[in-house]
Design a protein around this nucleic acid. Structure first.
Length: 600
RNA sequence: GCUGCUGUAGCUCAGUCGGUAGAGCACUUCCUUGGUAAGGAAGAGGUCGCUAGUUCGAAUCUAGUCAGUAGCACCA
C-alpha cells in the first residue's frame, strides 16, 4: 500500500522537483517579498512552503500562479548547477528573504557540506537536485490543488508557513484519472454517506465537538460488531470485565498517564477535595482487577476485555466525523502474560485481527501494519534499552509468524512500549490507525504487576494492550467508507424493505412483513431487520428511496405474488427483480445472516 | 492547537449596490391505487452560527467568539 510502483519512477520526481522551483520562481515574481522555505516532490506531485510577510496567498491567486508557471516553462530557461561552501552560501542569502533558507542550511544541510544551487533565469534556489536541464521539458499538465498551513520542520512551536500543493503526474491522462478517482473516493466519505444512511449525529454546538451519537441505524452496526466480538471472546478465552468511567487523580498519577497526558484528558472536577478525571484509557483500572490477589504462573495468562468508552480531549483541528472523536468506545483487551508467553499471545491477537478482517472483506491491500518504536526523545519514552529491544523483538517475531508484512517507524511508540498499528486510509486519504496492539513493560512496574513463578519468586508481568476492532466510532466510519455505504447483509441496519404495488395488497404485505421480520433461534437479537414501506408513493419512488439507503433486499408484492404466495426480490446492485417463494427467500436470508456472508 | 477557507429551512443551495429572506428535495394534508431509481396540488417550516460594533436601517460591512472544513501539528 505504501510502496507503490510510481514511487520508483525517478524521472517524475526530478521533473516535479523542477516544477517546484518553477512554482517558487512564479511566486517570487508575483510576491517579491516572499520568503521561500522548501519545495520537495511528493508521491502525487510537489509542494512549496513559503511565507509572504503581511500577505496571505489564496486560491484566488492560483490562476495567476499557473500562468506564471506556464510562462516560465514556455521560455525554456536553462537550469544550471553551481556549488559553494556552507559559509559562502549563508553569506549569499538576504537577511529577510533568506530567513528560512538559513534554517535549511543550519539545521538540515550542515556546516561541512558543499551546498549546491540551481539557477533558472534570475531565480536561484539552494537545492540538492537533480533537476531537468531546462524548464521547457517540464509537463504543463499539473493542477494547483490546495493552499494550507505547514510548520517549519513540522514543529508546532515554530512559525507556520503557507504550503501550495500541486498534483503533477507527468501527463494529462494520468492527471485526469487521478482527479476523477479522487472525486470518486470523496463520495465514499462517511460524513457524506451519512446523509443518506443516517448512522450518526453530531451536534457540536449543543452537545460538543467530537461527541458522536449513533442513531438506531448506526447502533445496529455497533451491536453486530459487539456480538461478533463476544463470540470471538469465548474462542480466545477473553474474560469480560467492567469498570467506571471516572477515577481519582491518584490512579492516573500512578499509571504515569498524568502528568504526561494531562493535555489530552478532559480537565478534572473536584469531589470531596479530590480531583476526579474522566478516564482516557482503561488499562490502570484493569490492572487493579488483575492485581486484586496474588497470581500463580499456572493461571497466566489472564486476558481481560471490556467494551467501554474513554474520553480524550483530542485537538480541535484533528476532529473529523466518526474517524476522530472525543468519546471513544473500544473493545479494549489487556493480556497479563509471562515473558515466555508474550509472543504467542501477541500472535493470537494478530490471528484475531485476521479473523475479523476476513469476515469484513478487508484485504491486505486495504491496510498496512506499522511497528512503532521509540526514538531517543527521553520525554516521550521510558528509558530502558534492553526492554525496548526485547519487546520490539517479541512483536517482530509474532508478526512474522503470522506472515504479515510490516514497516517499522521510529518515534511513534507508546511511552510504555512498542506497538503494532493496523493503518487504513480514509476516503479523503487521511491515514488512521484502525486498531492497535502494544506490549507494555513499564506499566507493569508502576502497578507492581507480578505473578509467583515455579521457583516461588515474584516475576514481572508483561501486558499486551489490544483493541482489534478498534473503536466503534472509527471502525463504523471506516467500514462505511470501505463498503461505500453498501454494508454486507449481516451489518446492514435495514436488511429488507417490503412494499406493495398498491394498498389493495395491504394484508398480504403485512403478512410478508410478519414472516420476514420473524426472529430466529440462535440469537434472538439477530432476527431479520425488515422495514415496511407504507408510504403513499408510487412503486418506483419507494424503490428509489430504499435504493438510496443501500438496503440489501427490496421486496415487492402485488396481485401475482399474493396469488402464488411468492415475493418479488430486488437485490442491491441489480436493477432486475426475481420472483421466489416467500419461504425460500426467508431461508436464504437467514442463512446468509447466520454465516455473515459478505455477498448478497 | 496553528494557518487558510466556510457558516442562510432537516438536506443541497440562491440572495444583486446594506432596505428584517427564496428555490428544489425531505415533511404534513388532499388528489392519485399506481408493477421496479422522482405522479400531481396545496401547506407548514428560518431571530440568516452567536455576541458586540458601524449605520436611520445589517443575512449583507467590521471585530470578537463558537463550529465545520483543508492541510500542518497531535494521536496512550
Amino acid at each position: 500500500m505504501c510502496d507503490d510502483k510510481t514511487k520508483g519512477d525517478k524521472s517524475i520526481l526530478i521533473m516535479n522537483h523542477t516544477l517546484a522551483h518553477i512554482l517558487a520562481y512564479s511566486l517570487q515574481k508575483l510576491f517579491p517579498s516572499i520568503k521561500l522555505y522548501i519545495g520537495p516532490a511528493t508521491e502525487e506531485g510537489f509542494y512549496y512552503d513559503f511565507k509572504v510577510p503581511n500577505i496571505s496567498v489564496s486560491v484566488d491567486d492560483f490562476d495567476d500562479i499557473k500562468k506564471e508557471m506556464i510562462k516560465i516553462i514556455d521560455l525554456d530557461l536553462k537550469i544550471s548547477r553551481s556549488e559553494t561552501s556552507f559559509v559562502d552560501s549563508i553569506k549569499g542569502l538576504d537577511d529577510e528573504k533568506g530567513e528560512y533558507k538559513k534554517v535549511i542550511l543550519n539545521e538540515i544541510v550542515g556546516k561541512d557540506a558543499v551546498v549546491s544551487s540551481y539557477k533558472m533565469g534570475d531565480f536561484v534556489d539552494i537545492c540538492e537536485g537533480p533537476h531537468l536541464s531546462s524548464t521547457g521539458s517540464a509537463s504543463k499538465h499539473f493542477y494547483i490543488d490546495t493552499i494550507s498551513g505547514a510548520y517549519i520542520r513540522g514543529d508546532s512551536k515554530r512559525d507556520m508557513l503557507q504550503r501550495i500543493s500541486v498534483i503533477s503526474l507527468g501527463n494529462e491522462k494520468k492527471l485526469k484519472v487521478f482527479l476523477k478517482n479522487r472525486e470518486l473516493a470523496r463520495q465514499a466519505d462517511h460524513r457524506l454517506l451519512n446523509k443518506e444512511l443516517d448512522l450518526f449525529v453530531l451536534e457540536p454546538n449543543i452537545i460538543g465537538p467530537g461527541l458522536a451519537m449513533l442513531t438506531e441505524n448506526g447502533t445496529v452496526i455497533k451491536s453486530e460488531l459487539e456480538f461478533l466480538a463476544t463470540e470471538k471472546e469465548r474462542r480466545f478465552n477473553l474474560l469480560r470485565v467492567f469498570t467506571p468511567h471516572i477515577a481519582k487523580e491518584k490512579l492516573f498519577l500512578k499509571s504515569g498517564h498524568l502528568p504526561y497526558y494531562k493535555e489530552d484528558m478532559y480537565p478534572p472536577f473536584k469531589i470531596d477535595d479530590e480531583d476526579i478525571y474522566l478516564k482516557a484509557m482503561n488499562c490502570p483500572l484493569h490492572h487493579y482487577i488483575f492485581s486484586r490477589h496474588n497470581r500463580s504462573y499456572r493461571e497466566m495468562p489472564i486476558r481481560y476485555t471490556e467494551f467501554s468508552t474513554v474520553y480524550r480531549y483530542e485537538a480541535s483541528g484533528s476532529l473529523s466525523g466518526l474517524m476522530r472523536v472525543r468519546a471513544i468506545t473500544q473493545n479494549d483487551i489487556h493480556i497479563y502474560s509471562r515473558e515466555d508467553q508474550v509472543v504467542e499471545e501477541f500472535r493470537k491477537i494478530i490471528q484475531l485481527h485476521k479473523e475479523y478482517y476476513n469476515l469484513l472483506g478487508i484485504k491486505s491491500e486495504d491496510f498496512f501494519l506499522e511497528l512503532s518504536l521509540p526514538d531517543d526523545n527521553k520525554d516521550k519514552f521510558i528509558e530502558d534499552d534492553s526492554e525496548w529491544k526485547k519487546t520490539a523483538e517479541f512483536i517482530r517475531e509474532a508478526v512474522k509468524l503470522e506472515n504479515i508484512e510490516f514497516k517499522e517507524v521510529q518515534g511513534e511508540a507508546a511511552f510504555y512500549g512498542p506497538k503494532a498499528d493496523f493503518q487504513v486510509k480514509s476516503a479523503i486519504g487521511t491515514v488512521y490507525a484502525i486498531s492497535t496492539s502494544q506490549v507494555d513493560f513499564a506499566g507493569t512496574k508502576r502497578f507492581d504487576l507480578t505473578f509467583v513463578n515455579d521457583k516461588g519468586e515474584n516475576e514481572k508481568v508483561y501486558v499486551i494492550h489490544a483493541a482489534p476492532l478498534g473503536s466503534y466510532e472509527r471502525t463504523i466510519g471506516f467500514l462505511t467508507e470501505h463498503f461505500v455505504g453498501a454494508f454486507p447483509l449481516w451489518l446492514a441496519p435495514i436488511q429488507v424493505v417490503v412494499m406493495a404495488v398498491s394498498d389493495k395488497f395491504q394484508s398480504y404485505l403485512n403478512n410478508v412483513f410478519a414472516m420476514v421480520s420473524v426472529e430466529f433461534v440462535n440469537n434472538a437479537t439477530r432476527g431479520i431487520r425488515c422495514n415496511i414501506d407504507k408510504s403513499d408513493e408510487r412503486l418506483a419512488k419507494k424503490i428509489r428511496n430504499s435504493t438510496r439507503q443501500k438496503v440489501p433486499y427490496i421486496v415487492v408484492v402485488g396481485e401475482n405474488e399474493e396469488k402464488s404466495n411468492t415475493v418479488s426480490v430486488r437485490t442491491r446492485g441489480s436493477n432486475k427483480s426475481v420472483s421466489m417463494p416467500l419461504e425460500k427467500f426467508v431461508q436464504m436470508i437467514k442463512s446468509k445472516i447466520e454465516s455473515r456472508d459478505i455477498n448478497l
